[in-house]
């Protein structure tokens, strides 16, 4: 489904990713771990098409398409979703309007008719329940005044609405208490199917107690330096990263 080959990316002239290789098949969950500054969030940003990052070398093929040629919105409609580490507040744009526009843009690209107001509201209600999102939140501006936990739950709610083939969770566990973590993880697990895939970017092993990865990768200095089974995460938790360098 996703093939990353020798990926080099930089921001403001500073190289962050230095030849990253990664391959993901449908039905798989991949965890990417690594110390601060290793390039985890850069990988997420490059996958989603953040224009602040420049890809200087390498390729990314997603569902047979050259991802690097596509705009962020085209990538989204092709089935890529990023749960942001820091979800953005957008004052004045209501969640309802935001989500309806997004869902209908997806439908438009698939050649489907836009949802009616009734259909859309029904869909919203269903998906909200997956992450136990307060129904009043959708009447507010996007993420404005949301607590840290509400923001993360809102990300998973959006993921449920857009039903991506590849979900990238960038430090979704940061800033979450145990209850919120459980709700978010439960939401992610409910959305898991054999025909989609997930990348979980995290600092800590604890999220992986809830979301079981098939593979654990260690990202260091812009490269994946080790790949292992879920036990690797436990080992990293215990020993840190120094022994791998």
């Amino acid at each position: 489904m996703l093939k990353i080959k020798d990926l080099h990316a930089s921001i403001n002239g500073k190289e962050i990713l230095r030849g990253l290789n990664l391959e993901i098949q449908t039905g798989e969950v991949h965890a990417i771990m690594g110390p601060n500054g290793s390039g985890k969030s850069t990988l997420a940003a490059v996958l989603v098409g953040n224009p602040a990052f420049e890809v200087t070398k390498g390729e990314i093929v997603f569902k047979g398409q050259n991802l690097l040629e596509l705009s962020p919105e085209e990538r989204s409609c092709l089935g890529i979703f990023l749960s942001f580490q820091y979800p953005v507040e957008i004052p004045g744009v209501s969640m309802v309007n935001f989500m309806r526009t997004a869902v209908n843009e997806h439908r438009k690209r698939k050649g489907e008719q836009p949802l009616t107001a009734g259909e859309f509201l029904k869909m919203m209600r269903e998906k909200q329940s997956i992450v136990e999102l307060d129904k009043n939140l959708v009447n507010r501006s996007v993420n404005e005044g949301f607590s840290g936990g509400e923001k993360k739950r809102n990300e998973i709610f959006q993921m449920a609405m857009l039903d991506p083939d590849l979900a990238i969770l960038d430090e979704t566990d940061s800033g979450l208490d145990i209850d919120a973590l459980r709700i978010v993880a439960h939401g992610v697990n409910q959305l898991k199917r054999t025909d989609n895939a997930t990348i979980v970017i995290t600092h800590y092993q604890r999220l992986l107690d809830y979301i079981k990865p098939d593979f654990v990768h260690v990202l260091y200095h812009g490269q994946i330096i080790k790949t292992g089974n879920p036990e690797l995460a436990l080992e990293l938790e215990e020993k840190g990263y120094d022994w791998l360098k």
Partner: peptide, 22 residues
């Protein structure tokens, strides 16, 4: 905000419009 909206599938033009309108 623009990137956030685009990453959800909203076209750049539409996202700019929504932000201006907001």
């Amino acid at each position: 905000a623009l990137l956030y909206m685009r990453s959800r599938g909203i076209s750049k033009e539409e996202a700019i419009l929504m932000l201006k309108f907001a």
